[in-house]
Write a protein that binds this DNA or RNA. Structure first.
Lengths: 333, 333
DNA sequence: CTGTTAGCGCCTTCAG
DNA sequence: CTGAAGGCGCTAACAG
C-alpha cells in the first residue's frame, strides 16, 4: 500500500503539500495539484482512513445499532435515519448487537467510533449506553426509557396506542380481550400492557391474568401463545397482540383450527409492519410513526453536535389503522 | 477522554505496562494488572479504536454493502453473512451505497476500512470494486459478473432458474408468456431474461418483444408494467415477473381490473421473498438459496484471509416453489 | 504557495 | 517484569 509519503516523493513535493492537494485545499496551485494527483493515481494510492480519523477526531459517521441486521426491521425507520444522515453529509453504518458485550455494537458505542449513535436494540444493556454517554457523543435511544444527561429518548406513545387498540375493541362491544405480551424486559411491551390495562379499568372491565399470555414478539411465540389460548376451554371475544409479528403467528394458529377471524374472534396488532396489509384477513393495527422517529433521532444528534440544546425526551403519537381483523358489531355509539 | 497515558500515570506504571495489562498480555503480574485495571476504571478509560486499528492494520471486521439499508433485503442472505462472520469472531457492519461515489460504501471499499467486503449493491460501479481489489483485501460480489484476480463471484443460477420458471409455464400448456424485466443494467435481470428466451426457443415458441416490458425490480414498476400489459388489447396466458416485488405489484394491478389470477392469467415470480407466501394468491416463484449465498460469501473471505486458494466463481442453484398463482391445466405429462 | 515539524493514541521492540 | 523510544499514516499549525 502506497502512503502519502510515496506520493509526495514521486511528485517531488512535501508531504503536507500532497495532503493539501489531495484534500482539495485552496492553497495549492493547479500545476502542483495535478502533479500530485497523477503521482497518486500511478501509485494507486488510497489514503488510510483510520489514520485520518485519528487526526481529525471526527468521523462524520453516525451508527445505527440494530438488534439483528437481518431482523424484521422497521424499514421506514431506517429510511428516516438514512435520509437525514446523508442530507447532512454524514455516513451511516449499521451494526448488530448480536453477541452481547462482545458485539460490534458495543465496540462502536464504547470506543466512540462514530460521532453519534441511534440505538434500536433491546439486547444492548442500559449500562453500556450509560457508560458510553458523554457530552460530545450524542446517543439517542428508540427502545427504552433512560434518564441521563447525554442520552436522548425518542419514543412512540405506546401507552396511548395500546389504549386506542383496547378502546377500539371495547367500543365494538367486546369485553373479553386477551393480551399476548412481548418479553417482560421490553419497555415497549410494558407500556403497551399498561395502556391495555388502563383502558380496561376506565371502562370497568376487570383485568384477568388468565387472558394475559406471554410471548416474545416473534411470530412463533404468537403462534404458540394462540394455541395455548385456544386450548383453554373458552375463547375470548378478541385478542390484542403486542405486535404484528405475533398477531400474524396468531392468525395462522386460528386458521389451522378453523377459527374464523374476525367472525369467531377479533384480532388487533401493533406496529403496522408491511406484512400486515397482506395477511388474511388484513390486520387492524396501531401504526407507529416510524419514519418520523428515525428522522427525528438523527436530527437531534446533529443538533447536539452543533452545540444546540435539545429536550431529553420526545414522544410521538400513534394511529389506528382499520382493516378487517376486527368484527364490527357496534350498533349504536 | 482519558488516554492510556493517563491510566499509566494514575497506576504509577509505564505506558507499555498499561497497554500490556489492558490487552491481557501474559507478562504482567497480577498485582500490576489489577492496579492498571482499577486506574482505567476510575478514569472511565476507553481505548481509541482508530488509534489501535492504525497500529494493528487489521480491523477484524467485514463489511456488507447494500444498495439501501432500508430496502427489501434478502434477510436470509444477511443472516448467512452475519452468522458466519460472528462465528469467526469478526465484526460485521453494513453500509449503504446510496450516494454513489461519495457513499459510505465506497469509502469503506477504497480506504480498506475492513478486512473483507461483500457487495450486494447494483449501484456500486464495477470500477470502484476493481480499483479496490487487492491480494490482501478479499471482495466478494453477489450481484454481478466481474473478472478479476482478487474479486470472488458468487452467483445464483439465474439462467437456470428462469428456464425452470418458463418451462413450468410451458409444461402447463401456456405459450404466450410475458416477461416483465428488471433494469437493463442489472446482471441478474439479464441472466433471467436469457433463461426465459432459451426455454422458449427450445420449445420453438417464438419470442415476441411485445411481451417484454421493462420494469426496474420495484413493486411500483411491476404495477405499472402490468397496467401497460392490460392496456394492450390481448392478455397473454401468463406473465413471468423478473422478481417477486414486481409480481406483487402486478397482482395488485390485476386485482384492480378484476382479472383473476390464476384463472384468467398465471403469474410466476423470482426470489421467493417473505411476502410472496402471503399475497393473494400465494405466489409461485423461484427460490434463491439466499442464506447459503451469504454464508458462502463470508466463508470465502475467511479462506482467502487465511491464505488459502479459492475459486473465483461459484454458482448456486435455484428451486421452484409451487404455490397458487399458476393455473394447472396440464392434463397429461 | 510550499516545506518543516509536531503530534493524534496506541502498540511493540529493545534494553534494563 | 518494566520503562524508554520509535513509529503507524495523516493533518495542521507555523515558517519560509
Amino acid at each position: 500500500m502506497a502512503t502519502i509519503k510515496d506520493v509526495a516523493k514521486l511528485a517531488g513535493v512535501a508531504i503536507s503539500t500532497a495532503s493539501y492537494a489531495l484534500n482539495n485545499s485552496a492553497k495549492i496551485s493547479a500545476a502542483t495539484r495535478k502533479k500530485v494527483e497523477e503521482a497518486a493515481r500511478s501509485l494507486n494510492y488510497q489514503k488510510n482512513g483510520f489514520a485520518s480519523d485519528l487526526k481529525r477526531t471526527q468521523t462524520k459517521t453516525i451508527v445505527l445499532i440494530l438488534s439483528d441486521l437481518s431482523g424484521p426491521y422497521y424499514s421506514e425507520l431506517i429510511k428516516g435515519v438514512q435520509e437525514v444522515t446523508s442530507a447532512n453529509g454524514y455516513d451511516l453504518i449499521a451494526c448488530s448487537s448480536i453477541g452481547g458485550q462482545q458485539s460490534t455494537a458495543v465496540k462502536f458505542l464504547k470506543e466512540k467510533r462514530a460521532d453519534g449513535v441511534v440505538v434500536l436494540a433491546h439486547n444492548i444493556t442500559d449500562e453500556v449506553i450509560l457508560d458510553s454517554a458523554r457530552p460530545d457523543f450524542p446517543i439517542v435511544v428508540l427502545d427504552r426509557n433512560l434518564q441521563h444527561d447525554h442520552v436522548i429518548q425518542v419514543e412512540v406513545d405506546n401507552t396511548e396506542g395500546a389504549r386506542m387498540a383496547t378502546n377500539y375493541l371495547l367500543d365494538r362491544g367486546m369485553k373479553e380481550i386477551a393480551y399476548i405480551s412481548g418479553p417482560n424486559n421490553s419497555h415497549d411491551n410494558e407500556r403497551r400492557l399498561s395502556g391495555y390495562r388502563e383502558a380496561l379499568e376506565k371502562r370497568h372491565v376487570p383485568f384477568s391474568s388468565r387472558l394475559k399470555i406471554s410471548g416474545d414478539f416473534t411470530r412463533d411465540s404468537g403462534y404458540f401463545s394462540t394455541k395455548m389460548l385456544i386450548a383453554q376451554q373458552h375463547l375470548p371475544e378478541a385478542v390484542f397482540f403486542a405486535n404484528d409479528e405475533m398477531a400474524i403467528g396468531g392468525l395462522q394458529a386460528f386458521a389451522e383450527k378453523g377459527i374464523r377471524v374476525p367472525d369467531d374472534i377479533s384480532v388487533i396488532g401493533f406496529d403496522d409492519i408491511q406484512l400486515s396489509e397482506y395477511v388474511s384477513p388484513p390486520l387492524t393495527t396501531i401504526r407507529q410513526p416510524k419514519y418520523e422517529a428515525g428522522a427525528l433521532a438523527v436530527h437531534l444528534i446533529f443538533q447536539v453536535l452543533a452545540g444546540e440544546k435539545v429536550e431529553d425526551h420526545y414522544n410521538l403519537s400513534t394511529e389506528l389503522i382499520e382493516r378487517s381483523s376486527v368484527k364490527n358489531h357496534s350498533y349504536s355509539r
